[in-house]
Design a protein around this nucleic acid. Structure first.
Lengths: 296, 296
DNA sequence: ATGCCTTACGTTATACGTAATTATT
DNA sequence: AATAATTACGTATAACGTAAGGCAT
């Protein structure tokens, strides 16, 4: 008795057959010829050793055994696909240093600074909330995380990175363009342009300016364009890069919530890297509130 | 970029490798040559598109990605094996009429009577408890079930089959061999030979004769031999087949628990079969308690 | 006639084993 | 030496596509 082995391509075609219902349909969908599918199904039947199809001279359909087999086939094919994806994702993660952060700006500075320490690896940043950051640091998903409060975690150390200060960007002809500083309350009710992925800044501004509408823009280049060519107010910070746009003025936000400190937390073994990060971390603007850029 | 497909034999060899740890070990275990395994693993790596092995010139081991892949591989190979088994079992069930029963004796009579009604199919009997019988009849696992009480189930009918009366088998020189009838209490404390698969009789005798020890024998032929050649008491019933063993006497059990009626319950559409079963069902012995063999 | 499945056939890909090679212990 | 992995090579299996045939609607 010849005991044929089941092949994955056969299971794939069987699963497809339970969708299409015809041999030729399977062939078309999977890019193989009709006879190839016909043969594959016959061989699969032989491999199972039991009838799977009702065959009349002119058409083929699954019997109840075949339907059961098809359900198995689908699960197996999907398991193989998931296996490949999972293994590839894992391999990618091995070649990636993932840095988590509550806000985007620190990542812009930190990512290039990390490259020399992890040559050959991809430095990837991920924006999420503190809870996820702490958890991901613990289970190794994040190599290091940037938060507005130092984290306490066994085997890890926190180092102060620097600060970020929020500022309004107004057209020079805006009614409040002459002020030395502005509070959230001063601007509340005015609609504003907002970049989509702002981390905690997003919820902060929505909370502090409940009467404003925010025009959220996901594309960074489009965002810059909007800011430059419209009179709608927007935000910037000391970490956002030089933004000397003609006809715009930059005014610090006076509320204490608009001033945050960042801490980077990582494995104790990465202390050297973390310290170097803190030393090299520098804002594009020096602080308008007069605080020092370097910490003690 | 050549995008190779994963083959099941590769996954099988990968799973084996995670056990053996060497290419040659895999070859030996799976009955393929060393080079074949070496090539298969290289092709599998190519199919995944990521490195799975640490290769030194003289040895190969899984890296962490490979271990992950091997776990997937094992699950997939097992899923395929389970699929084949499940499909084959299902196909077998299609060609089987499964009859459930609380006791073995009615099955001995019923199975041969069913053959002409289900020609080409295998008649299989299964011994289990009433609860499982009722459930299995409802979900179609059992085509019909035999119980000591008629079952009420939508779309199904119960028909009285006949009765079974328990009897003691004693050596002619046993102290109680002269009695016309015996109660369980009379025999309680005496050790007895018992067939293993007796359905509800098993628990009944253990309950009624709590001071007896039962020597349980699974093999039917051996059981007959024991009964014939030892002086240890045993049981028989009017359905157990003629048991005219020289030097043995058969004495009815007087307790009412030793007398049961059987009902066969099946689909309404099988009513004709069920009725014929009841008509053809006959004990080997006529009842010693004087009841009629045929029912109204 | 058209659609669907199968059989037949020649081609090609590829999985296999044997044998030889290299490296490690 | 012995063990383990690889490379090289010839063979054979078998999956493929094209072409042709049979049977239904």
């Amino acid at each position: 008795m010849e005991t044929r082995l089941i092949e994955l391509y056969q299971l794939e075609e069987l699963a497809a057959f339970s969708d299409c219902g015809t041999i030729s349909g399977v062939g078309e969908r999977l890019g193989v010829s009709q006879p190839a599918v016909s043969r594959a199904m016959r061989l699969l039947e032989e491999a199972f050793g039991v009838p799977l199809f009702n065959r009349s001279s002119n058409s083929v359909s699954l019997n109840s055994t075949g339907e059961k087999a098809a359900r198995h086939a689908r699960l197996i094919v999907e398991a193989v696909q998931r296996a490949v994806e999972d293994v590839r994702a894992y391999d990618r993660s091995l070649n990636t240093v993932l840095v988590g952060s509550e806000a985007p700006a620190p990542l812009w500075s930190v990512a290039p600074l990390l490259s020399p320490f992890f040559s050959g690896k991809v430095i990837a940043g991920e924006l999420t909330d503190v809870r996820t950051l702490q958890e991901g640091l613990g289970n190794g998903r994040f190599r290091m995380v940037i938060t507005t409060c130092p984290l306490r975690l066994a085997g890890h150390v926190s180092v102060r990175l620097g600060h970020e200060d929020l500022m309004f960007v107004l057209s020079a002809d805006h009614a409040l363009a002459g002020r030395r500083s502005l509070s959230f309350a001063d601007m509340d009710g005015q609609n504003m342009l907002l970049f989509n992925r702002l981390g905690f800044w997003r919820s902060l501004t929505e909370r502090m300016m409940p009467h404003s509408r925010f025009y959220v823009q996901s594309d960074m280049a489009a965002m810059r364009d909007f800011v430059a060519h419209s009179s709608i107010p927007s935000f910037t910070t000391n970490l956002a890069g030089p933004l000397a746009v003609k006809g715009k003025v930059v005014i610090p936000v006076s509320d204490k919530e608009a001033h945050v400190e960042y801490f980077v937390t990582g494995r104790s073994g990465d202390l050297g890297v973390l310290s170097q990060l803190a030393r090299s971390f520098a804002p594009f603007y020096s602080s308008l509130s007069g605080e020092p850029d370097q910490q003690g």
